[in-house]
Amino acid sequence: MGIDIKFPIGLMFTLLGALLTFYGLFTNADAALYSRSLGVNINLWSGLGMLLFGLIMLVFAFRTHQSKKR
């Protein structure tokens, strides 16, 4: 119906993933922040995972879009 849901999903996770990745990078030295997560920079890892997922969704969305045009 109307829109391809892969676009908004891809866009949102790319955006949120990038946000968390940057936040993770900037707070990397903050040991107090990551003491809860056992010293793991969980923001960075989650961010990268979401970024990857978002980009894969976008690639699929563009491919569907292209094949529909043809």
Binding site: L20, G24, Y34, R36, L38
Partner: peptide, 11 residues
């Protein structure tokens, strides 16, 4: 509350 720092906590 136990495991998530600001950032993933929001998620």
């Amino acid at each position: 509350k136990q495991y998530l720092p600001a950032g993933v906590l929001g998620l």
